[in-house]
Simulated assay, not measured.
Amino acid sequence: MSTYWRDKFENSFLPSEKQLGLDSILQEAQDAYWGSLGASLMAFGGEIDPAKLDRMDRELNGENPMRIAANDCYDYAINGRLQLAKDGEEQTQMNDSWYRLAMVVLSARPAIEVFSPRIRGREMVLPVGLEHILFLSLVRARLDLDTHPKFEDQEAIPMFLSCEENTGYLTLKEIAVLGQMSERAVRNAAQPTAADRLYTRKEGIQTVVGSEEALRWLKGRRGFVVTRAD
Rank of each mutant, 00 (worst) to 15 (best):
E10V: 10
E10I: 10
N11Q: 12
S24L: 04
S24E: 11
S24Q: 08
W34F: 14
S40M: 15
A43E: 15
G46H: 13
I48V: 13
P50Y: 00
R55T: 08
D57V: 05
L60T: 14
N61P: 00
G62I: 01
M66I: 09
M66A: 07
Y76K: 03
A77H: 06
Q83G: 09
A85Q: 06
K86Y: 06
K86N: 13
E89I: 10
E90N: 09
Q91E: 15
Q93V: 07
N95I: 10
D96L: 12
R100D: 08
V104F: 13
V105D: 02
A108F: 02
A108P: 04
P110G: 04
E113W: 00
S116D: 11
S116L: 07
P117C: 04
R122N: 07
R122L: 05
E123I: 02
M124R: 10
M124F: 01
V128F: 10
G129K: 05
H132A: 12
L134T: 10
S137T: 06
L143R: 02
L145W: 00
H148G: 09
H148P: 07
P149M: 00
K150S: 11
K150H: 13
K150Q: 14
E152M: 10
D153R: 15
M159E: 11
E164T: 11
E165G: 06
E165T: 13
N166D: 15
N166S: 15
G168I: 02
Y169C: 10
K173N: 03
L178Y: 08
Q180E: 12
S182K: 13
R184M: 11
N188S: 13
A190H: 08
Q191I: 02
A194E: 09
T200K: 05
R201C: 09
Q206P: 00
V208A: 02
V209H: 02
S211M: 03
A214H: 04
L218A: 08
K219Q: 12
R221G: 04
